[in-house]
Amino acid sequence: MNTIWIVLPILTLLMFQLGMELDRASFRRVVRRPGAVAAGLAGQLLLLPLIAFGVALAFRLPPLFFLGLMLIACCPGGSSSNVFSMLAKGDVALSVTLTALSSIITLFTIPAVMSLATRFAATHSDMAIHLPTGRLFLQNIVLQFLPMAAGALYRHRCPQRAERLHALLGRIAFPALMLLAALFFLQYADTILRHLGRLGMAAAALILLAMLGGALLSRMLRTGRKARRTIVIEVGMQNAAQAIAIASSPLIFDSPQMAIPAIVYALMMNVILLAYLKTLRGTAR
């Protein structure tokens, strides 16, 4: 069974759900709260790929795992971050804005960063690795931008129905992502278990360093406690489904092995973020 046919509807579902959260107020917040938005985007778009590059080198990941980790760092924030931000008593409106903006900006940054990463991996290995940039951009438009636009349009045209559908999708999205991770794990269990130690530590290091970086950026720009919690979560949670879709797509890398870091990342991400929520609740007492 090719997991790409499971990834595609899940990713489309997640992006459609995100689109239904968007309104004009989401983008007006960029002007009203430039410091918080700048901290979140700098953490996701600039700091995270640099951290992933350093982590991949530190753990001496093989070329395909190196590219898989870099791919995670290039992807936008995941829609689950909005739920985690709410549970952390953060700024949910800021979370939606950051997820939306990063989803749009990464249409252009993913091809650029992954092109550099692919060249680096090819130079430092015997593998012939090629990135079809045009196909990557086209796939991101179809699977990312168009579902978001459709979700936003549906909310504009049918606000009450969109509210009910959004609530339903919110309950389905996270279990769907976990189902994807479970099916992928079962299909590639031998490879995942063989590299789980190194990949698990690399994914954990990426998430923890990203969260720390988000916290430092928000403190530097004095965003306030609620915004800081949201930025920590946004920088620490990336769209694993999109990373899997790009890695395993027959049009792009066509490499299930490259998608394995995203599966491990998705599992580690939820464990670490749940621990973060528990820590916040402990400090609130």
Rank of each mutant, 00 (worst) to 15 (best):
L183I: 15
A162F: 04
I192Y: 00
V55G: 01
T133D: 01
Q242K: 05
L136N: 00
S81Y: 02
V271N: 05
F185H: 12
L251S: 11
A149M: 12
G200P: 10
L18N: 07
P261D: 07
L87D: 05
P49K: 03
L48W: 00
S125E: 09
G282C: 11
I207V: 08
L116W: 07
H195Y: 13
Y188Q: 15
D91S: 07
M1V: 13
L209V: 07
R222G: 12
V7Y: 04
M268D: 02
I6L: 15
L146S: 09
P250F: 07
Q257C: 04
L61Y: 00
T109P: 03
L199Y: 11
L47G: 07
F137T: 00
T97A: 13
I246N: 01
H124I: 04
R29T: 13
A58E: 04
L267G: 10
Y188H: 15
L280Q: 14
L11H: 00
L22A: 10
V142Q: 12
A284K: 15
L206A: 03
G197A: 01
I141G: 10
L41C: 08
I6R: 06
N270S: 07
Q160P: 04
T123D: 12
V7A: 07
L196R: 12
I141P: 14
M237D: 03
D254S: 11
I244T: 03
Y188N: 15
R33A: 06
A121S: 10
T283E: 12
A189M: 14
M114A: 14
P62Y: 10
R164W: 00
G54Q: 09
S85E: 08
I252Q: 05
M20F: 01
T191N: 14
I4T: 07
H195G: 01
T123L: 07
L48M: 10
L168E: 05
R164H: 09
E21W: 01
L186W: 14
I129G: 01
R225F: 02
M201H: 13
G282S: 10
L183T: 15
G214W: 03
L41T: 06
G35L: 13
L183G: 11
A150Y: 09
S249T: 00
